[in-house]
Design a protein around this nucleic acid. Sequence first.
DNA 1: AGTGAGTTGACTAATATTGACCTGAAAAAT
DNA 2: ATTTTTCAGGTCAATATTAGTCAACTCACT
Lengths: 146, 146
Amino acid sequence: MENENLSQVIEQYILDLFNLEQENFITMRRKELAEHFECVPSQINYVLRSRFSPAQGYLIESRRGEYGYIRIKKITCESPEEKISHIEDLIGEKISMNNAAKLLQSLQERDFITARERLLIEISLKESNNPAKLLQKILSGLMLVQ
Amino acid sequence: MENENLSQVIEQYILDLFNLEQENFITMRRKELAEHFECVPSQINYVLRSRFSPAQGYLIESRRGEYGYIRIKKITCESPEEKISHIEDLIGEKISMNNAAKLLQSLQERDFITARERLLIEISLKESNNPAKLLQKILSGLMLVQ
DNA sequence: AGTGAGTTGACTAATATTGACCTGAAAAAT
DNA sequence: ATTTTTCAGGTCAATATTAGTCAACTCACT
């Protein structure tokens, strides 16, 4: 497996950090990571954006200036497989906006989401100019979150 | 990340004062704090501005001259109405996207929203073409549901 | 050729520290 | 009672340091 690119290597490095930690978050310095992998600092942002996004179950907190840091919080559960299959059964093949409301109601009735979560999702969908895409991302986030 | 900067140390010192007190406010002298930490007095103002703002749940009162003091009050939101009006204050003025993530972090730390809700909101904000407006709608909607 | 993931660096923005200068309240002097 | 002095907190700008954004470019795979 010689053909790994740098982003994959950095991703694995971060995942290894999570395995070492007992906490659900890790803290690092962008500058130091970039020096370690001999890349530009913005490469780290790309890895975070493409692999540790909210839709993938992660929250990023950061601070600039002296003693700056980047903290990645894992909101995902240990073994999301069961939950994924449950929700995928409910979703079926396609998510149309017509049955989005029904889907959310069903998810709430099965205690996969709370009333508050359903409300905030419906508000977001209503305001979105691409509700189908947003719903996809929200559901993929939900599937990963405990 | 064993390195802490002075502002963090002062912040923790103030938080410790709150834990010692049974009141919802603490009173101190800027000059004495600055002498204790061997820093310029305006450093204290910086800590207050960056860490004890209304968005973070605190109000500042002070008096100059002899017998001068600085008092930090914790916003308590004991009734639902107080909570709603407090949140409305925070989102009333247009929220810049720079501060949206920090506001959500602060709201989660104060248990106004859960980590799941924060994650779902961030997913929706990222997909939105008017994140500030969406955040306003989501938060005002959420505050109505207990 | 077109597409999309990955890479790069120039430019932008936020954080913390420091000190010079400003403002307000109460004591002291008149 | 009014003015002056002293004391203590407020504001702002300069600087250093670190992270974020954005757009151009590369490369692999259609």
